[in-house]
Amino acid sequence: MKIKEVVNLLNAKIVSGEYLLDTEAEFVFASDLMSDVLTIEKDNLMLITGLANLQTIRTSEMSDINKIIFVRKKKATDEMIQLAVENDIILIECDYSMFKTAGILYQSGLKPVY
């Protein structure tokens, strides 16, 4: 599924990496705990999280995660967007809950890590 379809399905807003809208998403992991995210070995992963701070972007950089969806109306700061741009990470802001976001994407065919 392309990122632009993800954005449409979630009625969301892309705040970084607009030029990557045609990138494909396949696997998704949802967590607010960065310690958990750092244990995932899968590459090119999409992360759903309600944790919006600089360490969310840093964790994604180290874990080769290039797509982040912030749920529960959480917003990325300018500093987070800057770091995401430096690392070619797509940032999406979504007003839905984590459960609803994950449910929509799972139903649409995106795969869990385990």
Binding site: M34, S35, D36, L51, N53, T56, T59
Partner: peptide, 15 residues
Amino acid sequence: EMGFGAGMGLPNIKN
């Protein structure tokens, strides 16, 4: 609050 402190750091370093 930063998303850490779950007691997983050192075990993950070992892994």
